[in-house]
């Protein structure tokens, strides 16, 4: 059997929508790739963009940030702030040469189990396509 590269994708999910959406996908027995390391946060607005840089440093091959659709935020406006932040973060990462396929953001509501599957699948597929991340991972450096 040939070794296929299985990417390590870190997913930051908001407690109220995307985490529940992932839960729904599970209870509905929708299959999706198991490469995700889910970190649950209360709101996408709580996700410090440095989390993303840190995830890459600590060995993530891809990062996914997911939260409620605009207007649905449990805290009214947290995802609006997150949207601005990650718009710029995505551009910045791309600009220094981190492949665009490694970082994604999505809106997945608690009822969108099927969409969750699609989002995960495309995220993992794209991370697979670009291969292991080595640009500024910590343990790639000779300590």
């Amino acid at each position: 059997m040939s070794e296929q590269f299985e990417p390590n994708v870190v997913a930051f999910l908001c407690n109220w929508c995307s985490y529940a959406g992932a839960d729904l996908a599970g209870t509905s027995r929708i299959q999706y790739p198991p490469n995700l390391n889910v970190i649950r946060v209360m709101c996408t607005g709580r996700i410090n963009p440095l989390f993303v840089i840190n995830a890459f440093q600590q060995g993530a091959d891809g990062v996914l940030v997911s939260g409620c659709h605009p207007g649905d935020c449990h805290y009214m406006e947290g995802n609006y702030f997150a949207r601005r932040r990650f718009t710029m973060m995505k551009e910045l990462l791309d600009y220094v040469g981190v492949d665009n396929k490694r970082f994604h953001m999505s809106w997945v509501s608690a009822s969108e189990g099927a969409k969750w599957k699609d989002v995960v699948k495309s995220t993992v597929d794209e991370a697979k396509e670009v291969g292991p991340f080595a640009q500024f991972q910590r343990n790639k450096i000779n300590w």
Binding site: I53, Q57, L92, V96, Q135, F136
Partner: peptide, 25 residues
């Protein structure tokens, strides 16, 4: 520790990205 003190490409990149991002807008 957001960015380690050691000087290597990983920490230096994290430093420069954090610094640049904090100045976004």
């Amino acid at each position: 520790t957001w960015v380690n003190r050691s000087n290597n490409i990983s920490e230096n990149t994290a430093f420069h990205l954090s610094r640049a991002f904090h100045l976004a807008g």
